[in-house]
Amino acid sequence: MRKLIVLTAAAALLASPACKRKRHPNPMATIEEESPLASTVPVADPAASSQLLSGFHAVEQNAWRWSARKFSVSLAVPKEAAARGANLQLVLTLPEAVAGSMLGVTVQPSVGGRTLEPYRVTKTGEQTASFDVPKELLNTPAVIAEFELDKVVAPREGESRELGLVVAQVSLVAK
C-alpha cells in the first residue's frame, strides 16, 4: 500500500510537466469586427474562416485543421507583391501517427490557375512549405491559392474523413 502511494505521488509529479502544452487562446472569447481580406490566414481563427474556401475539416485544439486531399484559400495580395513577387507559405504538420502512410507526400500548389513548384514532406512535425509566386500572378487585390496532395489517409473505422495534412496557417508574403 505504501509503495502504491509513493508510486502514485511520483507519477503525479512526473505527469505535471507532461501536461504543459502550447496554449491557444479560446477563439470564441472575442467577437471581432468584420475585417478586410487578410494575406495571412490562421486557419483556426474564426475571423478568417470566410477565407477558407474548401477542403478544411473542423478546428481542433483552437489551433489547426485537418485538410482534405484538395484545399483552397483566398488571400489578399500584399501591397508590394505586385511589383516584387511573393512567397506563398503553408505552415503544416505531419503527425507521427500518420507518418507511416503519409511521409513523402507531395503538396502541389497553384495560384490563379498556374501550378507552382511542389513541396515534398520528408519529415514529421511542424514545418513551413514556401512556394515562389511570380509577380505577374499578383496584379489583383486577392488570389485563390489551391493545394493538392498526392496521397491522403483514407476514411477508416472510427474516422469517416479523408485526412491530408494538419494545417495551421496559409499566408502570402511579399518578397
Binding site: P25, N26, P27, A29, T30, E32, D45, A47
Partner: peptide
C-alpha cells in the same frame, strides 16, 4: 480569456 485572445490578435 477575451483579453488573452485580444492580445494574441
Amino acid at each position: 480569456e477575451g483579453l488573452e485572445r485580444a492580445v494574441t490578435l
